[in-house]
Design a protein around this nucleic acid. Structure first.
Lengths: 256, 256
DNA sequence: CGGAGACTTGAAAGCCTTCAAGACGTGTGG
DNA sequence: CCACACGTCTTGAAGGCTTTCAAGTCTCCG
């Protein structure tokens, strides 16, 4: 660890230009020289332990974070103190946009595992974004993707479907997101969150999550062992997520 | 309508600087002279009839819209063709951010009533925002508020509550939003959307929405007559939305 | 090795959904 | 101006899925 060469590699890896997440993150589409500006601003490589918080509800909006390793959950505390999980964040995804509206955080971000993040001071980010068109575009794109993920989750919750269908859709989405990071077509991954977290995210009881996992397994869609998920058949997973509406195909009436 | 004086008034009202929604919209916090730039860009006062669309899923991302009068719903069509309502939009609220991520719309925006909107070409908006710091800040703030509304909705869906509690929370939120527009503390408003729309927004059957309305009425929380809502007691509405957890207050144990 | 938390599984109860029919309300045409 | 028709909304009853309570197993960490 104290080998100077290792340290150099570390230093190199810290740079946005060397980051494996570059294409998912703010640098995408930013020219090499502009990247230096972004680079110099990022307070990089903040490491947090499991269950640590990046920020709390009510905190001033100082920075956004991008997960580099590990995973996070975003928890909104309602006026009555009940906690709702509104999002999970894996490497390459942005955290902290909930503060853009009011200038102060409305949720808190909690590490699900040991993790590290890039901390990006928001004032500086927007200032540079104003001067670097590519960065401004990319910032808005990253925000847009965050909105899209939120919409997908909302759709999953509002669609009146069974528990195992919701879980299937959740797992399907997670698989796609992990593939963006890994770059390969792996069909196995480890859940960073507990059943309880999944339950509060999907709006059901944790016992129901367990039963839904069990059902997906007996249906030969996945193999589940603790937090290890192995997707046996991705098409089956997609089908499990979107039950075919018998009625649509059972009506052989031609357009009259 | 053809009276020249009326036309002048119309022309004046079109200006951002004269718009009653100024404080809710992009101009907030932008200096008077910078406002002219924003003003000149906005293709103002596009009028649409009920059930008309501002854009469809798959459309290129050309512009964002701000509702001026009337109301809209944003509908996401899943791969299987089932439609989920992910948002409602009343005057002062922005529409179309779902396209920021991919450069093309993933939802469609449908007018619930006769309505009119300000159409703001997005490329020009960001270009001017890069030059006008106040506008950039406000743009991000408006986006942030949109994210916050989405989070609140997600929380409402994920919280495992009864149907009438969800509906109460929905009505409470709508009341607050209408107050921002009206400026006054009115406790009555007209729902722009059908029971069916509410049902698909809240993830329940439309019959359940009807029963939930009925229950809120028998509980003396609201009076509901068709689409007319009268909130009798706002505190009651809040309580109906967040059922008190008996356990918390029923445990008289002092901190041991 | 022990303990605490996470996870699973079973059984009864409750709430929502579904199917069905009727009431209401609005807009159109006579 | 009234009648009719259509869609929206309401209300009832049976059934299903999830929740809840409970007990037991597993797993990780000290």
């Amino acid at each position: 660890m104290s080998d100077p060469q290792v340290i150099d590699l570390e230093a190199l890896r810290r740079r946005c230009s060397q980051c494996s997440l570059q294409q998912l993150c703010l640098p995408a589409g930013v020219s090499a020289q502009d990247l230096d500006q972004l680079d110099s601003m990022v307070r990089r490589r903040k490491t947090v332990g499991a269950a640590e918080r990046l920020f709390r509800a009510g905190d001033n909006f100082a920075a956004v974070y991008v997960a580099r390793e590990g995973a996070f959950k975003t928890v909104c505390i309602s006026s009555e103190g009940e906690e709702q999980i509104v999002g999970f964040h894996i490497p390459g995804e942005i955290i902290g946009l909930d503060a853009m509206g009011e200038g102060r955080h409305r949720c808190e971000a909690i590490a699900l595992t040991k993790a590290n993040v890039c901390e990006v001071p928001f004032a500086q980010l927007t200032e540079i974004a104003a001067r670097v068109p590519g960065l401004q575009r990319q910032l808005l794109r990253v925000i847009g993707k965050d909105i899209n993920r939120a919409h997908e989750h909302t759709s999953n919750l509002a669609a009146r479907r069974g528990a195992h269908e919701r879980l299937a859709l959740f797992l399907h989405g997670l698989l796609q997101r992990y593939r963006l990071v890994n770059g390969k077509a792996s069909s196995t991954f480890k859940l960073p969150m507990s059943r309880e977290d999944i339950a509060r995210y999907l709006g059901m009881a944790n016992e129901t999550v367990s039963r839904a996992f069990a059902r997906l397994q007996t249906d030969r869609v996945i193999v589940i062992a603790g937090r290890r998920v192995d997707v046996l058949d991705e098409d089956l997973l997609t089908q499990a997520a979107h039950p075919v509406d018998e009625i649509d195909r059972a009506t052989p009436r031609t357009a009259s």
